[in-house]
Design a protein around this nucleic acid. Structure first.
Lengths: 158, 158
DNA sequence: CAGTATCCTACGTGATACTG
DNA sequence: CAGTATCACGTAGGATACTG
């Protein structure tokens, strides 16, 4: 790839990929969602080289997805910002897809529950304005005001 | 990375990343969602090298995400299988995040609508069993029956 | 503990030429 | 049109040693 990011593409998906679409970033973010906070925890959990981890954390902080603070014990800690927390639908959509199409033999590896009720959350789904679940083929894309390229104007999943 | 995939990790997210977590795959899938079907269309739209595109398409077909058929004109066509269509929540979650945090100057690049009503779909959101939208911090992870590693057992976004 | 600094290797990628 | 076959390159990534 020319410059290893997709900024030049006028596409929100590509924009997102330029930030998190790289081998380690999403896994680090997942770890933070799972409650890991410290450099050594990420390193142990992921088996990632320290120089790479250092670089990735720096990048995620620079992107405003993580924030670095000093923990009680005086060690550095990384936590999700709101921008980072907003990635949860992405993580859960991917996890649900993996649950369905790349399942573990014995059942789901993780179950996500509503902290208040303890009941599992719904599967991530696309919903119409009035809340009905939509199948992929019921959705189509239209140009928005920010649409800038000469990309083919074809309906989504026609 | 040792083997460029994450199969060794007991994690549905990592499983999903091993299939689509690579620079071009998701963008190809997006193109198919947008209605592109042919090798030359992908190549032109993405500016990807032909050998790479060939390899990626082969992989996506092998994974059961795309299926290759002969179109009317005798040319090869690629279409999404149900497994591929099931990735729509992933794509839309990423797109919505990009819309919010990496916006185009003039507004949304694409708007996704319910084909029947023409009205925009809802933003992708995590929902409780009874349909309430949940904030990231209201969700926590619990071990499922397929949980197999000695990973730290920490709550999600505690 | 939480990194930084090097070195080295392998793989993803791009460019180009060729084929059925 | 839809690929395949090579080659050449850059950089992400791993390993290791070192530091505040």
């Amino acid at each position: 790839m020319k410059n290893s990011n997709f900024d030049y593409m006028n596409c929100s998906l590509a924009q997102t990929l330029s930030v998190i679409g790289e081998h380690w970033s999403l896994l680090i973010i997942r770890d933070v969602f799972m409650g890991l906070r410290r450099f050594s925890e990420f390193q142990k959990d992921l088996g990632i080289a320290k120089n790479i981890l250092s670089e990735r954390l720096k990048r995620l902080v620079a992107e405003g997805i993580l924030e670095k603070t000093k923990g009680e014990a005086g060690f550095s800690e990384y936590r999700l910002t709101e921008k980072g927390l907003a990635l949860q639908p992405v993580l859960l959509s991917m996890t649900h897809w993996g649950d369905q199409y790349k399942p573990a033999k014995k059942g789901k590896r993780l179950v996500f529950v509503d902290r208040a009720s303890g009941k599992p959350i719904q599967r991530m789904a696309v919903r119409s304005h009035d809340g009905r679940k939509l199948h992929a083929k019921e959705v189509k894309a239209k140009r928005g005001s920010g649409y800038a390229s000469e990309r083919l104007d074809v309906p989504l999943a026609e």
